[in-house]
Design a binder for these strands. Sequence first.
DNA 1: TTGTACGCGTTATCAC
DNA 2: GTGATAACGCGTACAA
Lengths: 336, 336
Amino acid sequence: MTTIKDIAKEAGVSYTTVSNVIHGRTSRVSSQTIAQINEIIKRSGYAPNMSARSLVSNSSKVIGIINHLVPKASGGFIADPFHSAFIGAVEETLRENGYYLMLRTVEDSMDLLSFLRNWNIDGMFFTGLFEDEFFDTLSSVDVPIVLIDSYINHPNMQNVGLEDYKGGYLATKYLIENGHRNIAFASPPIRSHGVVEERLRGYRQALDEFHIPYQEQFLFQGEFDVQSDMLLSRQIAAHKEITAVFATADILAAGIIAGLHDIGLNVPNDISVVGFDDVTLCQLISPTLTTIHQDTVEKGKAAVEFMMNRLNNNRVEEHQKILPVHLIERKSVKRI
Amino acid sequence: MTTIKDIAKEAGVSYTTVSNVIHGRTSRVSSQTIAQINEIIKRSGYAPNMSARSLVSNSSKVIGIINHLVPKASGGFIADPFHSAFIGAVEETLRENGYYLMLRTVEDSMDLLSFLRNWNIDGMFFTGLFEDEFFDTLSSVDVPIVLIDSYINHPNMQNVGLEDYKGGYLATKYLIENGHRNIAFASPPIRSHGVVEERLRGYRQALDEFHIPYQEQFLFQGEFDVQSDMLLSRQIAAHKEITAVFATADILAAGIIAGLHDIGLNVPNDISVVGFDDVTLCQLISPTLTTIHQDTVEKGKAAVEFMMNRLNNNRVEEHQKILPVHLIERKSVKRI
DNA sequence: TTGTACGCGTTATCAC
DNA sequence: GTGATAACGCGTACAA
């Protein structure tokens, strides 16, 4: 492997000079040596040893995307299509900025702390963080943290999220305007400071505006797997008065639609459904899914931008970036 | 940050001793000191500095999952559900073995080489590699490489794949046995040494066995996006004699089904469809998709297992691990 | 059973 | 303009 020393030797200079050239501190190096060194660098395919840099500079150029494994569940991480698109966008933007991405699952605070120290991690992304014990650890760490889809506010962290409230509102309003009054709200378990809670607020706001009473029994909570969705569908269908469902994620919506089909109900003729996210899936199921659109790539970019600001300026201007959502009309809602 | 020195100082021993304890070379350390050192390690939350280790030991414990960005396309990487599930499985298994995962997109050979040197990467995973110029670079590198879903054989690399041939065979045979004779083969562009080529071989084998002539015009190639799928569907529908489609990926199958619906054709009544992969999607679309099942998590585990064997023993016994596939019968095929 | 000293590749400080 | 040299945290050969 070519090192700075090798280059210095070949050029007949000291390694300081080589290092200076590499870092653009060329003010006091003869243009001859600069040219020569650059030539050698190019020819030899020199690439800096990041471990050495990390050791001496206290910056590793490594950013972690952390997956907090709450129970000992498998896969979770990257399983849903939104997540993976997001990670792809993050990697790309990070790379453009000279950073590297590590994926890491941690089981508890200790795990996380070890990981940070192991690699001298420069920054972290967290998705869907809630206010649990784990969060306390996080807030005491002095590494830049960008939270995605979380409603926790903390001076050391920045948030990238969506207009969740508005999304919930738009979806519900759209259903109401199409004549629906008994609208189910389907979601994963609602946790405080989470996005679902906000979407629920939007749902209630829309009901309120149209003077439709909010009913607890129209709340249905499940997990993100086909089994659980089947169950949800049955529960929803059991309420004959329900004519529409707002599901807080497209995969959930798709699962519910499949479940309804399974028990002989037609969407949208018997029940209308609106989703959230606008993943590719929406255009593949039938009926195609009316949903709330979010721009995942933009989300990834925004997250990295925040990170870079923290990393470079160290001056924090904003703490929040809320990306817009809008409704995409497809075929899963019927006017009644 | 706690270092080995700090621990040594606190325990009143030299750092060699601490290092020895950490590495289990306890044979010649008093059990007292061992206990004491372990206690301090636990209490202080000591985590080794991997950069320092990497520098001195020539092993970084970092494995890369490489995304070779052929043109300057975006996202590609992780976009399809199979990929993300695979990455999740790899991360988990890697972690259990004390390794770390970096995700990295590279645009060309230089990029890759730099990345390897930057981090002293211990090993790499590649998905769907073909025999292009890029491959030559790869083969000259002395880092363990595990290829996923690739039919390139190279002494320095190992392969984890599927019974692609059998999968293609099973899917086609199933269609034939259900009375179909004019069966389209839909896939992304067929490249030599790729999985699609093998699945096509299986397709042809099944046709052969039933004395059905193979027809070039029944081959349809597209990309993995909804637009392209719509086009494909139209092309397929234009051949009135075609009664069934074997698509080499579920997302493609789903896209085609959506496209067929769009032009007023019903699946499976007008056209039957069989997919490949058995991703969650299959159960969400309607009709639910009959497909060839593969075990993605097992694939991830197998890949890591290969990697670990290379990394530890350095003795290479097998070069190939082929995971089984089988057909899952759902509702997208009609007996005619 | 424990300690000393060196080197890994890099950066930064200070001197020439 | 350029060059020595210490330091980052760790592993290891060798010495005691």
